[in-house]
Design a protein around this nucleic acid. Structure first.
Lengths: 157, 157
DNA sequence: CTGCGTGCAAATTATTTGCATGCGC
DNA sequence: GCGCATGCAAATAATTTGCACGCAG
């Protein structure tokens, strides 16, 4: 383990390589996308004593040096994932499942936004909410806390 | 003032029409998009004594009955806007400005997600992050707290 | 009159910060 | 050895909850 890339990225910025940073990085790689607490829990499974504060600080640092990115998937909690693993997040409001889709889907949209509005969207930081295939047909009624839900805008055209 | 729609929506659900609910609704209409605290501040300008807790509860309720919606525009704060006023939010990471774009831009994307993945995206709940036209050419260097953000691979110094 | 809605304060959750110690380089 | 990184606890920020009273219906 300990891919040189991490040590490298740290060293090139005058930062130190530590066990904690490696563990956090590995947890993010393993989990795909996770909150600070989930990363902490994952690391704590094997190693003891890693402080939650350190996880917060490390994730922030890893984001600064461009190794991870974050989005707001759940209403309450910042979720981190590998920057190298770019994808759109599709969050189901019903079952809370997070699936991924290629950023290629956003190419047209990104182009139009740039052309029409001068806005350069960050395709690596996108979370789309909705209802996944599983929940859509199967069960329209929310099983739990879900109340409002969709408007289902008339797809007339 | 006091559009019957609000009273209506409340009454039809056995809920009561109150001054506070009207004030919160008006603030959301006026502000376009705002956090609970901003709504509270806005209302407090003219009326005194509206409790922040009530704002939270009212916004939640207004969302339940489908009059407002929320997105996570800033990293720390839920932002509410009129459900009737559907639009995409374009959030500039540099100047923090939030601009709006028609949801029509998402039509193709929504269709593809439905066709290819069975995911029914909620076009009324989209926030895209990036750099706005103003900041893009004008000023690449973040003025304040902004650190990582975009690619900007170089920065050798 | 009846109980929903509100205000207030305290509780939770998510995250940040200050300070002293320890470990990477 | 020097100073960044960590751990710990306390501080903030954002939001929620319990309870008693007042006002809408």
């Amino acid at each position: 383990m300990a891919p040189p890339s991490l040590t490298d990225a740290l060293r090139s910025r005058g930062l130190r390589m530590t066990v904690q940073r490696q563990l956090v990085m590995e947890a993010v790689e393993k989990l795909g996308h996770a909150t600070s607490e989930q990363v902490h829990a994952e690391v704590t499974k094997t190693a003891t004593g890693l402080n939650l504060t350190t996880v917060y600080r490390t994730l922030e640092l890893l984001e600064e040096i461009g190794l991870v990115r974050h989005t707001h998937l759940m209403d309450t909690a910042t979720t981190y994932h590998l920057a190298a693993d770019q994808h759109i997040h599709l969050v189901c409001r019903n079952c809370r499942t997070v699936s991924e889709a290629p950023t290629a889907l956003l190419t047209d949209l990104a182009t139009r936004l740039t052309d029409e509005r001068g806005f350069h969207m960050d395709v690596g930081h996108v979370a789309l909410f909705g209802i996944c295939g599983n929940c859509c047909g199967v069960d329209a009624a929310a099983p739990d806390g879900l109340r409002s839900g969709l408007k289902t805008p008339e797809v007339s055209s």
